[in-house]
Design a protein around this nucleic acid. Structure first.
Length: 283
DNA sequence: AACACCGCCTGAGCGC
DNA sequence: TGCGCTCAGGCGGTGT
């Protein structure tokens, strides 16, 4: 379930291991997880890692040569550093890079993720051009522009990476709860004040999740193989039927935009009324 | 043009 | 103990 905070957690945890590191060689185990050239140089062999960039849920490893390796973690992807190769290779490892102090490993059991090789930064800009603004720093005006005229539910709109890059199912529900907006509201009919409230909630939730290292439900690990600490702080995600952390009424669960959606009918709706804010142990 | 929906893929969890 | 079933969901492709 890597969303923006998980990918950012991977990026930050990998930086100390990768920045400036020369890539001695690469072993591509599954060609079908790769889009683009599979030439060793395209996969940064013989290159050195200059920078790690993130946009939404995607990570780009920029080589000193200017070549770019984009990593999508999809649902179950892991990108991690290990000092020593294990005696027996772990299952579902699709690519391994040899570095001076260890190995960088791409593992993805479900293969919803993958790698993309690009020749230069211009190609990366093009690759990322369909993505909306990064959700971690989304401002009111940009969110309002994205939502204007949309007839989708706000839940479905938040999951659209072309509108806003980085929010997935977990943080969409969490942000809507914090903003006290019902997920089935029409995206284009939110009031200006509600859009501002939502933009602020997205920034707040994502920043908190990044600070906690992301959410580990089952298999997310950062670049050091460590799980994230945010899952225990989810107010609504995965808590359908359980008491709302704010008002203690049972949280409702349904499907919106083909995704399980959890919300509090009392605190978040139903028509944009702003209920009193109860003192809350979570945020 | 905007949006809905399918299917990819594996492992966990569950009922029997 | 183990089998078969359901569910999880990011995202590209296709349909409406």
């Amino acid at each position: 379930m890597p969303e923006l905070p998980e990918v950012e957690s991977v990026r930050r945890s990998l930086e100390p291991h990768l920045l400036g590191a020369p890539v001695a060689s690469v072993r591509l185990i599954r060609r079908d997880i790769l889009t683009g050239s599979a030439a060793p140089a395209a996969l940064l062999a013989g290159d050195a890692v200059a920078r790690l960039h993130r946009r939404g849920k995607q990570l780009a490893i920029i080589g000193a040569s200017g070549r770019v390796l984009v990593v999508h973690l999809g649902m179950s992807g892991q990108l991690f550093f290990r000092a020593q190769p294990p005696a027996a290779e772990v299952a579902h490892v699709h690519a391994v890079w040899k570095l001076p102090r260890g190995q960088l490993v791409f593992r993805d059991p479900r293969r919803f993720g993958g790698l993309v090789t690009l020749p230069n930064g211009r190609a990366l800009d093009e690759h990322w051009s369909p993505l909306g603004p990064d959700a971690l720093s989304i401002d009111d005006a940009a969110l309002a522009a994205g939502l204007a005229g949309s007839r989708r539910t706000i839940k479905a709109a938040l999951l659209d990476q072309a509108l806003l890059a980085g929010v997935g199912n977990i943080y969409a529900d969490e942000a809507l709860f914090l903003a006290r907006i019902a997920p089935q509201r029409s995206a284009g009919r939110l009031k200006t004040a509600e859009v501002s409230q939502l933009a602020a909630a997205i920034r707040t939730i994502l920043a908190q999740a990044v600070a906690a290292g992301g959410s580990t439900l089952r298999d997310f690990l950062n670049g050091d193989g460590q799980p994230g600490g945010y899952a225990g702080r989810h107010a609504v995600y995965g808590r359908g039927g359980l008491p709302c952390p704010s008002c203690r009424r049972p949280l409702r669960q349904t499907v919106l935009g083909q995704r399980t959606t959890v919300w509090c009918a009392a605190c978040q709706g139903p028509r944009g009324k702003v209920p009193p804010i109860h003192n809350s142990s979570t945020v």
